[in-house]
Amino acid sequence: MEIWSALSRAKRGFRDDLRLHVVAIASLVVAFLCLGTALLSVENLTRIASRWSQTQHMTVYLRDQAKEADVAQLRLVLESLGEISKVEHISAVRARELFAEQTNMSSADLAQLPTDAFPASLELDLADGVPSARIEKIAARVQRFAGVEEVETYRSFFGQLRSLIDAGRSGALLLSLLVVVCVLAVIGNTIRLAVANRRREIEVLKLCGATDSFVRGPFVLEGVIQAVTASTLAMLLLFVAYAALHGHVESTLTALTGVRTVFLNPLTVLGTIAAAAFVGAIGSALSLRRYLQV
């Protein structure tokens, strides 16, 4: 089988040009690490976004001087709405307490915060699947009630998160393109040097009746093996780094975002390695077309 012969000759190529291949793989590992880090960030940002857009929540801030009767009436109206599953009244004092619990602030520090920093509010949980247009409509209606200071639907916050994720996505895409260019350049150059180092071998093969594909096979394989080795190594390194950092930052991140962080999903990892193999093959094939006149 020609593939086995190509494989054994590629092995010989690695043996004979070991330093060249090690240097190439090392630089490719760096490139794939950058890509992996970007993918990991995008993956987790996306999870945060989808988690937050699922928790349908609305806060109605009340004026300090709001009358109890007005608030009670507002509560009644809200509870009668099918879109609202739960209404909870948080007093100014309770709000201050909750903040203290969440932040572990000392009571001395807490006392220094202005009194109007913690308005009383009605916290509303929305039923699943309420369209955002309807939410905006409800918010507008609630705004007109006496005693209501402001209605927060968190829409603009989602908008900001969305654009952050979009920016992350474009960044990752740009980085992927850069990595592709880098892989093409590194592998192309390595194969060019390998071809130069093995002129005699190539000449011998041709004189003994080797076909072009027989001569080229091992070089293409070497490019693929380099890319696959480098991308696999980078993924492993990234995973080790993730596992090591995970324990330290997980609780803080989870508290901040309400979402557990995850590593890249296996399909993304496999996809990256497969794409690396493909780009590696292209890189060596392009280089061979230029530098191997068989």
Binding site: R200, C208, G209
Partner: peptide, 17 residues
């Protein structure tokens, strides 16, 4: 290549690897 497989060729400079 298929022509060359029927030939054996030896050179002045050996052309061994």
């Amino acid at each position: 290549p298929f022509l060359r497989r029927n030939l054996g060729i030896v050179f002045q400079d050996f052309k061994v690897v």
